[in-house]
């Protein structure tokens, strides 16, 4: 049996991921996060008399803090893996990746462990996030002036 034939044999036995179900779960969970965030924004605007921009910033911080706290308390990883991309794409996924790395490597020292591995998973997001926003700004300047 050569490598190509073997690939076909493996494909045959690989259980298919249910993409529709995964997408639906991600849509509902991600949507719920967005819905909750909108609620928090409205509350902040109402109670503290904040502008929408300021209230959005505070909401972002609250969500990041919540995801990090739940990670530290030890149950957010279960939610993450069950919610597919639903909790991965909002800021919750980003916060979770950083806090889980920090928790995991703190035993290897502040500098060599926690500091060196803090952005282990999130580093790519930051780098390519900044790069892509840079490119988009250029596109915006060229097209819209």
């Amino acid at each position: 049996m050569n490598k190509d034939e073997y690939q076909k044999l493996v494909k045959k036995h690989e259980p298919q991921e249910n993409k529709v179900e995964n997408a639906l779960i991600a849509f509902l969970v991600g949507g719920l996060i967005g819905f909750m965030a909108e609620g928090i924004i409205k509350i902040l605007m109402g109670i503290f008399d904040l502008s929408r921009v300021d209230a959005s910033t505070w909401t972002c911080l609250i969500i990041i803090f919540g995801a990090s706290l739940f990670t530290a308390l030890g149950f957010f990883d279960n939610w993450m893996s069950k919610a597919k991309a639903g909790l991965l794409l909002p800021t919750t996924g980003f916060a979770h990746s950083i806090s889980s790395s920090a928790l995991d490597y703190k035993k290897e020292g502040l500098i060599t462990g926690l500091g060196a591995n803090f952005f282990k998973l999130a580093g790519s997001v930051i780098l390519f996030g900044i790069l892509s926003s840079f490119v988009l700004v250029i596109v915006k300047v060229i097209t819209l002036g």
């Binding site: 990883d77 993450m80 597919k84 889980s100 790395s101 928790l103 995991d104 282990k120």
Partner: peptide, 17 residues
């Protein structure tokens, strides 16, 4: 998990294989 995959507390969605 730490050695080959993700930090322990990181909840990655996993494949059936």
């Amino acid at each position: 998990e730490r050695q080959f995959r993700y930090p322990v507390e990181y909840g990655a969605a996993k494949k059936h294989t």
